[in-house]
């Protein structure tokens, strides 16, 4: 079950119980079509090569405007990059550190323990560079929107020409999945914007799919661990409960 459907499901459950016609709350934009993510389901896991490609898309495209400040370079090890590769990504950026003995802040190459470098120092600086719009942090984006992964994929691939009856505001772009349809973000992905080392064609759809999977991982890096432990815990409780049922039957045998 996808979490973002929670409210709808709860309401639906109530309506079902009452056999009342259930009117969904009218959403402005169409519902993002569900995508087949490999990490869904009880045993679903992330697709490591896709995560690595997705990180490259983030690094080469999204990170120009969007921070992911809840991630550290050390987290890249989880994507299947080896330590040298992850340290290499870290060392590509200059991180502000200090103060040094003279009391000055200074830049040094990033380390594995550093958080992802933010493109802007603060929200004001981000708005100043982006025509007044604030590119949100993407660390939790896959969880911070209803059906976040499907929505993000729909958004990245949902740019179309504005219908003739729509007056686009200055600096805005038309996206059929964005609430209100007018979005400040220009279409971020262009064919072959990224070159994938594994030879995957960098079509817009491929890039969108991979970067969204990367976002889904970033929103909950412990998801695989959660499900792995969950399966064990459920099996254990199931066996214990069966045993407790047998015990209960035995105890009550004389009473019934």
């Amino acid at each position: 079950m996808r979490p973002a459907n929670a409210r709808m499901f709860r309401a639906g459950l109530v309506a079902l119980l009452l056999a009342l016609p259930f009117a969904a709350t009218a959403a402005e934009a169409p519902k993002p079509p569900p995508q087949p993510w490999s990490y869904q389901g009880v045993f679903g896991v992330f697709d490591r090569p896709a995560l690595q490609r997705g990180f490259l898309v983030y690094k080469q495209v999204c990170s120009a405007c969007h921070s992911m400040s809840r991630l550290s370079y050390r987290n890249l090890l989880q994507l299947g990059f080896d330590e040298a590769a992850a340290a290499g990504f870290a060392a590509e950026v200059q991180i502000a550190d200090g103060p040094n003995d003279e009391g000055e802040m200074y830049d040094r190459p990033g380390r594995l323990s550093d958080r992802f470098k933010k493109p802007f120092a603060n929200e004001k600086a981000a708005r100043a560079s982006n025509n007044g719009a604030y590119p949100p942090d993407l660390s939790l984006m896959a969880k911070a929107r209803p059906v976040g992964a499907d929505y993000s994929f729909a958004l990245l691939t949902g740019y179309i020409n504005a219908p003739s009856n729509v007056q686009l505001m200055e600096g805005m772009h038309y996206n059929k999945y964005f609430p209100g349809f007018q979005i400040a973000m220009a279409p971020p992905l262009a064919e072959n914007a990224v070159e994938f080392p594994d030879g995957t064609p960098a079509s817009i759809e491929n890039m969108a799919r991979d970067v969204v999977q990367f976002l889904a991982w970033a929103a909950e890096p412990k998801m695989e661990e959660r499900k792995r432990i969950g399966v064990k815990a459920m099996l254990f409780v199931l066996v214990l409960t069966a045993l407790l049922y047998a015990v209960k039957r035995k105890v009550w045998a004389a009473v019934h």
């Binding site: 066996v239 214990l240 045993l243 407790l244 047998a246 015990v247 035995k250």
Partner: peptide, 9 residues
């Protein structure tokens, strides 16, 4: 049964 349930618990 009791022992198994207790041990597993």
């Amino acid at each position: 049964l009791y022992l198994a349930a207790t041990a597993l618990g």
